[in-house]
Nucleic acid binder design. Sequence first.
DNA 1: ATGAAAGCGCTAACAC
DNA 2: GTGTTAGCGCTTTCAT
Lengths: 337, 337
Amino acid sequence: MGKKVTIRDIARLAGVSVTTVSQILNGKGERFSQKTRDKIFKLRDEYGYVPDFNARSLILRQSSSMIGVLVPNISSPFFGTFVEGVQHVAQHERMIPLIFSADRNAELEQNYLSQMLERSIDGLIIASATMTTDTINRIIGARDVPYILFDQNYAQEGTRVLTDDYRGGELAAQHLADLGHKKIAILEPNELSENFTQRLTGFQDCLRKNHIELDVAHNVIKAPLSRRGGYDAAAAVIKAGVTAAFAGNDDMAIGLMRGLRERGVKVPDQISIMGYDDIYLDEYVSPQLTTIRQPIMDLGIGAAKMLLNKIHSDQEQEQIQRFPVELVQRQSTARVR
Amino acid sequence: MGKKVTIRDIARLAGVSVTTVSQILNGKGERFSQKTRDKIFKLRDEYGYVPDFNARSLILRQSSSMIGVLVPNISSPFFGTFVEGVQHVAQHERMIPLIFSADRNAELEQNYLSQMLERSIDGLIIASATMTTDTINRIIGARDVPYILFDQNYAQEGTRVLTDDYRGGELAAQHLADLGHKKIAILEPNELSENFTQRLTGFQDCLRKNHIELDVAHNVIKAPLSRRGGYDAAAAVIKAGVTAAFAGNDDMAIGLMRGLRERGVKVPDQISIMGYDDIYLDEYVSPQLTTIRQPIMDLGIGAAKMLLNKIHSDQEQEQIQRFPVELVQRQSTARVR
DNA sequence: ATGAAAGCGCTAACAC
DNA sequence: GTGTTAGCGCTTTCAT
């Protein structure tokens, strides 16, 4: 790496003290002669001197100015967009986001979490598929690191950004009910994180209100929350003999549509499909996907702002920021016939 | 934030010296009595003591163990997947990737670059849409930070991972030629980065070999490299009266297909569409997209490995790692009629 | 078995 | 105008 040049090297080379160099280079050099100043700057450029980040932050007791972001899957449109929102806010405050994609792997998640903590991160945004608040708190330990929960969590407490999942479920159910569907299937993940529980409760409550019975034994289909998961569940959906299906998220819905297409089932003519999230792809698949929109980018922005706020104000109090959802009606749902 | 507990606090609390604490906590405490050791560990847990990262790396002269990754757009399937590849390798070596999505914004890119450099990053992977190697070198300055170039760069030099873009262009052209297409349009971005130049040269050379004329004046359509860009270019493609179009990347192709669909043009019956990249969506759109496959995840893995290698071995020598491309034939292309 | 002391590279009171 | 000095929190050599 080539030995690093230190402030002392520069001082020696210039025949001045380190103070002089330090002050001048930090823009506090008014009191030094122009000649000295020029010399120092010249030397710095010549030798490519850069202050050691560690030494500097050690003495200035700066925070690391880093926030951690833990998501299941950065290459998904949903989390990719979310992260862009976070990054946008962070950049604004010259905070660096450490982004980790842990692929729903518990060990990896905890691993990343520890690594971030070691680096004395200022705060965390966690969309963990596996960790409970207990686990998180245990790893954080006595450190005073604020965190914001988001999306897939097994938590009913803690500061977090939420969307109105119950309402989202209702909107979806009402939409299908309005179209006259009576036989409806649900695709949901094996482990129900809090947001899914809400969403499904809203969905089922609303069906009931419309006097529609959900055949829980046959029409609640478990599948991974992914395109692949939806794709593989196509057979089960067909077998269920339903006229509509509500997928856990858009990825899943898009996979399901592909699976149905390959089996010769027409969407929405034979089966209506609803997703959830409103990822940017929805408009590009065919038929365009009807879904419940979450303001994904805003969620990222909101989470980041909330976290920064918490970092700066140091208030213990639990906060919850709630975002609205809405029905986005496109082409994958139609009146039953 | 709560005052941080230092090693001295622990030492004082335990009634021992800082040496004792340091040694024991760093697993070099064999020489101390079991009783002391227990006491120290207990105190650490009780007070949540964690060594200060800066102080520690200052004295241990550790590197930051961070690598920077600069991409145009983290929420795109292409770069998302690439980044996952990078992260995979980094994790393995306990390196932390700093991931920045700069949205093809020159100022932002340089900003991020500086920020990373300030934090004495160990190396960089740059898929910059705007910076030349000159700009990069200028910002890096005298620092000895290795970097790997990737994808969109205006560079014909420097250590980098490449795919055989010329060959990819050829494969695409040959495929369309084989299907009997004579009237072909190209969708390309306004600024041609090196990989695009190669790709298009390969494409055109191959057309020529097949005695197909490309009407450069009308059938080379400029559009942003995005779904939106492709979507908006649909009218121009129709107007060009071609039987096939080769889009700059899959995102663009997917947008284009949507645009054509909305205008009642059937793909591939009326117009065949080819993309480039083989992002994971290609199989989920309808018709499934024919494309030239780049091994995206492998590129990420390769770039990261190469960078780590360069960081550790400190060799100046320019290296190039080349990855193969291949034709993936799906449903968006068909024999002309 | 334990500790004193030096020093990593830097900044900032406080001299001179 | 410029330098001396005292740390920041930590690890490590070398005594004791």
